Computed example of a mutant assay.
Amino acid sequence: MGGKSTLFQKFALDHFFTLANHRSHSSHASHSSHASHRSSTGGYSYTPPTYSAPPRTGLLTLPGNSPRFTEIVRQVQTALTAYGYYNGAIDGVIGPASRAALLQFQKNFGLQQTGTITPETLTQLGITAG
């Protein structure tokens, strides 16, 4: 082969100088395209995006004395009677017997046990409040 270099040797020599002349990011920290990524310690940092839950819409808390609330309570009492959890008056009033029936129903169906009419309870009973 004598004094002639192979194509591979020329390629390797050319890239040796290219890589040796490359400046690392820390050596040109003032470069504007890199400034936003630098932390105070000279390394890169990542800030994860923040998440905020969307505002709750569609759920309306009805006052206990409104005609619509009374109608929903009657529907819940009727459904709880049909399921065998309630045997009181279908009067639209959440009293101790209604609360006990709601608690037992919620427990048996794996719902949060509140003893109140929740959206999840209405869904499980098949009642639409909207």
Rank of each mutant, 00 (worst) to 15 (best):
F17D: 01
L19A: 02
A20Y: 07
A20K: 13
A20N: 11
N21Y: 00
H22W: 08
H22E: 07
H22Q: 10
H25A: 15
S27L: 10
A29G: 15
S30D: 13
S30K: 14
S30T: 14
S30W: 11
H31Q: 04
H31Y: 10
H31C: 05
S32E: 10
S32A: 13
S33F: 07
H34E: 10
H34V: 13
H34F: 12
A35M: 14
A35L: 14
R38S: 12
S39M: 10
S40D: 11
T41L: 15
T41G: 14
Y44W: 10
Y44A: 12
S45Q: 13
S45C: 11
Y46H: 13
T47Y: 09
T47G: 05
P48K: 06
P48N: 04
P48L: 06
Y51V: 13
Y51S: 08
S52G: 00
P54V: 02
R56D: 00
R56S: 03
R56F: 01
T61E: 00
L62E: 08
P63K: 15
S66Q: 13
R68L: 13
R68G: 09
F69I: 08
F69S: 10
E71C: 08
E71T: 15
I72A: 06
I72S: 06
V73P: 05
V73F: 09
R74S: 11
Q75A: 09
V76C: 04
Q77A: 03
T78R: 05
T78L: 08
A79I: 07
L80A: 01
L80T: 01
T81E: 03
Y83S: 02
Y83G: 02
G84S: 04
Y86N: 02
Y86A: 01
N87F: 07
A89G: 02
A89Y: 05
D91A: 10
D91P: 09
G92N: 08
G92P: 05
G92I: 06
G92V: 13
G92K: 11
G95W: 04
P96A: 15
P96H: 12
P96I: 09
P96C: 12
A97E: 08
A97T: 09
A97K: 14
A97D: 06
S98C: 10
A100H: 03
A101W: 04
Q104H: 10
F105Q: 03
F105P: 03
